[in-house]
Design a protein around this nucleic acid. Structure first.
Lengths: 111, 111
DNA sequence: CCTTGACTTCGAGTGCGCTCTAACTGTTAC
DNA sequence: GTAACAGTTAGAGCGCACTCGAAGTCAAGG
């Protein structure tokens, strides 16, 4: 069974974030469940990297750290929270659509 | 000839910016040429309000204060600068288009 | 043993774009 | 004259999202 582990350095390379940012994301609660080895060093598995890519996407699309933190906290409350999670994502989708609409309006103005 | 003048308070109401922000925009050089009356108070004419609306649009669409300042400085260098101005606006349009593209990609991912 | 290097924490610093405060001035109404 | 009020400046403060630095720990290599 293939179960690769990555150091923070490697995780940084894989995801394009800095090690600083990876630790920061963990500190502020949007990157939970990162394991440690016997000497306290973090290691990241494929699932973690997957979530980090989602994180990048959410941040890049304008979701604030705070909103992501809410989402993460809700997600940790088991399957009952699926509806609430969907609501957050729906709201975010809606926000993105609005932003696209505004930007398209500005584009027309700029012509 | 109708040539209305507005106080900073009125300009703030007309444009939806705060008086603080209007002064700040002037300080950082993206809102030049605001006139003063005999006691040093600013007054804004229709042209100023027009530019403020453009400013709002440019900021809202992601142009940085610094880029707007460059644009303003170039604009003050007479008609020779029209090409340079167009270049900046074109670049900004292009950036908006890219942003829209990215956001649309994220929307698809979120489905 | 000692150096090297990657990691750790904690707290401070940075950059952007405002936003607010303090101290002051000038005009108007009473 | 004086109080109220709208304006002025310079500079400090804020919120966000990082970003960096100092000081320390730990494992491996020479």
């Amino acid at each position: 069974m293939t179960n690769p582990r990555y150091t923070i350095q490697q995780a940084a390379e894989q995801t394009g974030l800095s090690t600083h940012t990876l630790r920061y994301y963990e500190d502020v609660g949007i990157l939970p469940g990162i394991q440690r080895n016997s000497s306290g060093h973090r290691y990241y598995d494929e699932q973690d990297l997957g979530w980090i890519h989602w994180l990048k996407m959410l941040r890049h699309s304008g979701m604030s750290i705070e909103m992501i933190r809410d989402f993460v906290q809700i997600s940790q409350q088991g399957n009952d929270s699926i509806e609430a999670r969907c609501q957050i994502l729906d709201a975010h989708r809606q926000k993105i659509r609005e932003t696209i609409g505004e930007l398209e309006g500005y584009l027309r103005l700029l012509d």
